[in-house]
């Protein structure tokens, strides 16, 4: 994406809070009725609907100067904190979380876990359940951050914290970081692996890793 210097100059003057508002308002309108791109001022009309909005925002980030990139990362973390706990905002949250992982914004991890342990733990709507599964998926692929591994290890110890549908993605990714803990994780999730099909899948998995 080519961004004219005039527009980059405007973006490079924005504070972390401005950027948080910019992301929240922009992403919220992107999901709504037209014209969707205008709130992403000054670059709204440079964004296209033929490409994913997250991919485009990641490209914008790459064009910012280094201090603004730092503020953008802070803004992203602030923005995740400020997402509203209603269905209409779940698409915004998912886009922000994807962007945080893509840009490797470690500061966003605390706010993401706050969401996971708070609203997303108790909400039952289709949109919230989708966000919950999405956040777990993104975090599971972010195990190179020690905080993520620690949090997951703690949460796995709590009975019934995760749904059985979440276990495979968490289990596989934890093992990528700590392969020697396979028996420990399997023991913690013995209820999950108690069914014949899952137990045989685990045995095949162990066979593959051993061989």
């Amino acid at each position: 994406m080519k961004i004219p210097n005039e527009y980059l100059g405007t973006l490079n003057k924005m504070s972390a809070d401005d950027l948080a508002d910019w992301l929240l308002e922009g992403l919220r309108c992107w999901e709504e009725s037209p014209p969707k791109n205008i709130p992403f001022t000054p670059i709204g009309l440079l964004l296209t609907h033929h490409e994913d909005i997250g991919v485009q925002l990641a490209a914008v980030y790459e064009k910012l100067d280094a201090p603004t990139q730092t503020r953008f990362r802070k803004g992203l973390a602030h923005g995740i904190t400020r997402c509203r706990d209603v269905d209409e905002w779940q698409g915004v949250l998912r886009n922000m979380v994807w962007l945080a992982k893509t840009l490797k914004v470690a500061d966003a991890l605390q706010p993401i876990f706050f969401r996971l342990k708070g609203f997303l733990k108790v909400a039952k709507s289709k949109e919230a359940l989708r966000s919950r599964a999405y956040v777990i998926n993104i975090l599971a692929s972010w195990m190179e951050e020690p905080l993520v591994t620690q949090e997951f290890e703690q949460l796995l110890k709590k009975p019934d914290y995760f749904d059985k549908t979440d276990i495979p993605i968490i289990f596989l990714n934890l093992l990528k970081v700590h392969p020697k803990k396979l028996s420990e994780y399997a023991e913690q999730q013995k209820l999950f692996f108690s069914t014949g099909k899952r137990r045989s899948a685990l045995c095949s998995f162990v066979d593959i890793r051993v061989s």
């Binding site: 994913d52 991919v55 893509t102 989708r130 692929s141 749904d163």
Partner: peptide
């Protein structure tokens, strides 16, 4: 592209299959 496709997939099913959505 995957970044668009994954948003149209049932994420709960993807989690069960151990498929990561993150690029």
């Amino acid at each position: 592209r995957w970044e668009i496709l994954h948003k149209n997939l049932n994420i709960i099913e993807l989690n069960q299959m151990g498929i990561e959505v993150s690029n």
